[in-house]
Design a protein around this nucleic acid. Structure first.
Lengths: 126, 126
DNA sequence: ATATGTACCCTGTGATGTAATGGTACAACT
DNA sequence: AGTTGTACCATTACATCACAGGGTACATAT
C-alpha cells in the first residue's frame, strides 16, 4: 500500500490518511484481515507525528473499517469494504443541512445559529 | 423608558438592548404603538455606536416586537406583547440539541460535527 | 436643513477551535 | 529488550468569528 501525504494540501493530514486507506480497501488493494503498518511505523515512514496517524486509525476503527488488536497490531476489518461506503459525515451533513435551512427560513441570523451551536457543543454534559 | 447598558457585562451590548426593550414591553411600560427613540438618538444617549443599536432594532423587528416605518421612526409592534415571549433562539437551541445528541450517540466526533457545521454555514448558497 | 432607517466600506480586539507537534507512560504481548 | 495501541500532559501556528466601533452614503420624509 503506497500512502503519500501532501503537507501543502489544505486537506488535513489525518484526513488524507483516512481517505487513502479507505481507497486502498475499496479498490481491493487491501483485503479484510490484511495487516496495516503500525502507528509508529507509518508515522516514521511518512515523517508524521504518531498522534496524527493514531487519529486516522481511531476514526477508521470507529467506522469499522479497520480493527486494532492491541499489541498484535491493526488489521482490515472483515466488513471493511461495506463499511467503507458508509459515510457518517454525509449523514451528519444531511441532518444539519435540514436544520440550518429551516433556521434561515425562519429569519434566524447565521450568527445566532453559530452561537447556539457553539453553546451546545461546549456543554459536554447531558 | 430607562435603558442602561453595562460595558463590563459579558452579555453583548446589543443583546442587553434587546432584553431591556422586551422587558419594557412585557411589563407594560411600553405599549403597542408607542414610539421608540431613534437609532441615532438612543446611540447618543447611551454613548453607543449607532450600529450596535441598529442591530438590536433589527432583531426586535424580525421578532415582530417593534416596527420600523422608515423615516417616520420606530414603534412598538401591535402584537409586541405576545411576540415578546416567543424565543426564536430557544427553538434553535432545542432543534440543534436533538441533532447533536444523535450525532454523538452515533460516535461522531465533536470535531467532525463542527467541521460539517462550519462547511454548511459557509455555503451561503441554496 | 434635519431626521428617519438602512446599506455599504473598513478596522481592531478577543475568544475559540483545529491541526499538528512533542514528551512520557502504561499493560500486554513477542 | 522491543513493539503494540493507547492515554495523559503540554505547546505552537493558524483560521474564523463575534462584537463594537468609525465613516460615508442613500431615498424619503418633515
Amino acid at each position: 500500500m503506497e500512502i503519500i501525504v501532501n503537507i501543502d494540501d489544505p486537506i488535513p493530514l489525518f484526513a488524507q490518511l483516512v481517505a487513502q486507506i479507505k481507497q486502498a480497501i475499496a479498490s481491493d488493494s487491501k483485503k479484510p484481515g490484511d495487516p496495516l503498518p503500525s502507528i509508529r511505523q507509518l508515522a516514521n515512514d511518512l515523517e508524521l507525528n504518531s498522534k496524527t496517524v493514531a487519529k486516522a486509525y481511531r476514526l477508521l476503527e470507529r467506522d469499522a473499517v479497520i480493527q486494532t488488536r492491541g499489541y498484535r497490531g491493526t488489521f482490515v476489518h472483515p466488513d471493511a469494504k461495506a463499511n467503507c461506503s458508509i459515510d457518517l459525515n454525509a449523514w451528519v451533513n444531511q441532518q444539519l443541512s435540514v436544520s440550518i435551512s429551516s433556521f434561515r427560513n425562519a429569519g434566524v441570523t447565521d450568527s445566532e445559529i453559530r452561537i447556539a451551536f457553539a453553546n451546545l457543543m461546549n456543554e459536554r454534559n447531558k
